[in-house]
Design a protein around this nucleic acid. Structure first.
Lengths: 214, 214
DNA sequence: ACGTGTGAAGCATTTCACAGCG
DNA sequence: CGCTGTGAAATGCTTCACACGT
């Protein structure tokens, strides 16, 4: 296996998303005991095409064996390394409302190496509790101190939309380098900080559009 | 204003997503009392470029006035009509767990015309309650009857991943035309049914990648 | 013989630049 | 004069097709 240094060649966002998908597929292959897979096997399972898969991998190196295919376990390691999830990321959750609890209640983040190591909340009554599911709970004011102390690099915004912009500013001030924003508010971040927005309503609207026009 | 019939010209998925964003921006413009905006105003606010915005609109018709710009209120109506959200959509929520409650606890769906008119749940103790927040609660078995009765066209899957495929099958059987899948399971749907997947973990992985490679 | 890795072709989307119209 | 609407150019992404290595 040859692992390219991810140089200044720019990699399509779509490729990154697909790598995450391939990773999930491989999980399944592992479970069923499959040791070697071809690009067509993966394609069938996750609904892309084989050429695409090979191209996606090629951005990062040569992960396969010609004439044979890919060794599932190795490939998964390679993909995780390519994505940068071969390690654990410390995250802060801001907002302990419905959505925040939902995120804590699922293991899907933890399973993929994202560890919520601090929660920040506005409501003093909740903060009073001190912790939730063994994760320490802080007031918003403590962010600037706690985030560097805990080595937190990613902030997850799950507050109500009105407060999202303010929270984002504070997170950036505190030294966070990536933000996942669950509110529909448009937030601006300085260069060097990466922002991703998650908005289910947008997906539903896409669904509505397609239903209307098929 | 001229509203094109959305003919067989295919419209990029990305355009649809951006239309949803523009719609949100216009909401803000309305709040601040702005009556007329230019494509540059919108671009500044939501971080795209003016030409893109004009192109996006052009798929659907001529919404603006040359030399002037767009009348905010009209434009919003036009966008909503283009997206097919100038009306209400009946949705079913499957799974009354953490995530399901989070979805019910936010008004962001209702505000955009998506009405959850039935909840389906496996756990008999919850079903026993009969309803939640005035929304009727049913067992999974009742799906095939309730969905046509209620005129439900969209199903939202918020169960645990193991059950997602089974639930999807049932939803399709019951006559649902669109599915929003919150689990990481790969679901297959027959043609004629539209599937969208929402997976925060993928966005976080994208974040991790960019943080590693910037 | 088989399936990967990859240049080149084909398509799709974005950006440019300017004509057209209020 | 200003800003939209739109062909044409530029860029980016996906698919093809085959050389290459095992």
């Amino acid at each position: 296996m040859v692992f390219k240094k991810v140089s200044r060649i720019k990699i399509p966002e779509a490729t990154i998303r697909r790598l995450s998908l391939y990773d999930r597929c491989l999980e399944d292959f592992l479970k069923t005991g499959k040791k070697v897979v071809s690009s067509s096997d993966i394609a069938r399972k996750c609904g892309t095409n084989p050429a695409q898969i090979r191209k996606d991998f090629a951005y990062f190196g040569e992960f396969g064996v010609r004439g044979v295919g890919y060794y599932v376990e190795n490939l998964q390691g390679d993909i995780k390394r390519a994505l940068g999830i071969d390690r654990s990321w410390n995250c802060a959750l801001v907002g302990a409302g419905n959505l925040g609890f939902a995120l804590l209640g699922t293991d899907s983040l933890a399973k993929r190496g994202f560890k919520i190591s601090a929660i920040f909340e506005q409501d003093p009554i909740l903060v009073e509790m001190g912790s939730f599911q063994d994760i320490p709970l802080f007031s918003m004011e403590e962010m600037t101190r706690v985030i560097p102390d805990f080595g937190i690099k990613i902030g997850i915004i799950a507050v109500n939309p009105e407060n999202a912009v303010k929270v984002a500013l504070r997170l950036v001030d505190a030294g966070v380098k990536g933000i996942l924003n669950f509110t529909p508010s448009t937030i601006k971040v300085p260069s060097g900080v990466i922002l991703k927005n998650v908005d289910f309503a947008i997906d539903l609207e896409g669904l509505a559009f397609q239903l209307n026009n098929q």
